[in-house]
Design a protein around this nucleic acid. Structure first.
Ligand code: ZN
Ligand code: ZN
Ligand code: ZN
Ligand code: ZN
Lengths: 139, 139
DNA sequence: TTCTTATTGAAAATCATTTTCAATAATGGA
DNA sequence: TCCATTATTGAAAATGATTTTCAATAAGAA
């Protein structure tokens, strides 16, 4: 997995630094949408002393190679991390967990003469995990 | 149309001011996605002396009553204006024109136990109008 | 190991957005 | 129509997010 990322980075002449490894580890394990500042705090919390500037730069790089993508929620920019190509997300408004959705009507109808480059489909709501945490019988 | 908006505003105790009328006029006629700053400049360009702060406040109000919605493009926040309820957009990456899309698979499949509050579907590409402007035989 | 160059972090700079506050204008009622 | 109430406005200041700068460091190639 890290090997894939290394080569993805390498293709664009990016290096896989300690900071990037640490940040990728954090980001990819939590499967939650995060703001740059939340990511930075998560890093510090996990004992990874990394600069906020570096987090921003990292997100820029990851966006460029397509491992991450930003969206707006409540006026803030959140990033989702994922390694799959075309798919969509269900994002929990309560806990910000991200669930992948793999089915997609590729044949979205468009106005005549329009050429679609890409599309984004995001569903927002409350996820099962959050509901379980909150109201589950085993807590 | 303005009557509708007046009552929408009125329901939430908002007033229909000169500035809001002017801005709504500009926004609703251009059918282009715009950033707050672009809207402000468009207003100034059209001879409407309005403060940038007011544009921001207006967008907040319009978002609240659902006439406008923000999305991210190239790291900037753009707003689309529209008066219809549930539908989606085709946004031109070149000229930023917005086309409404009225068909939507409401039955989007979701992970078990997840409850969808709302969803967003945006298609990005090049629109017919832009292509015509650019390469059309009658220019 | 050594060289080259991408990357880092702290601080400063910039850009976007929000807050403050006194002046003004929109609505509702007399 | 006039008045009173209160939402709205705009300029400036404050805040917050993101980017730039630059010298020091570390990654990758040879
Ligand atoms: Zn995903
Ligand atoms: Zn799709
Ligand atoms: Zn629309
Ligand atoms: Zn829909």
């Amino acid at each position: 997995m890290i090997t894939n990322i290394r080569s993805l980075l390498h293709e664009q002449n990016y290096r896989l630094t300690q900071e990037r490894k640490a940040l990728l580890g954090l980001f990819s394990h939590a499967n939650k949408a995060r703001t740059p500042i939340q990511l930075h705090q998560a890093a510090l919390g996990a004992g990874v002393g990394i600069g906020l500037t570096t987090v921003y730069r990292m997100l820029e790089v990851l966006t460029k190679i397509g491992l991450v993508s930003p969206f707006l929620l409540d006026g803030a920019v959140y990033y989702t991390y994922c390694t799959h190509s075309h798919h969509h997300h269900f994002i929990c408004l309560d806990c910000h967990r991200v669930n992948d959705l793999f089915d997609c009507q590729q044949e979205l109808s468009t106005p005549d003469g329009c050429v679609v480059e890409y599309h984004k489909l995001d569903l927002f709501g409350t996820c099962a995990t959050f509901t379980r945490e909150r109201f589950g019988e085993f807590n």
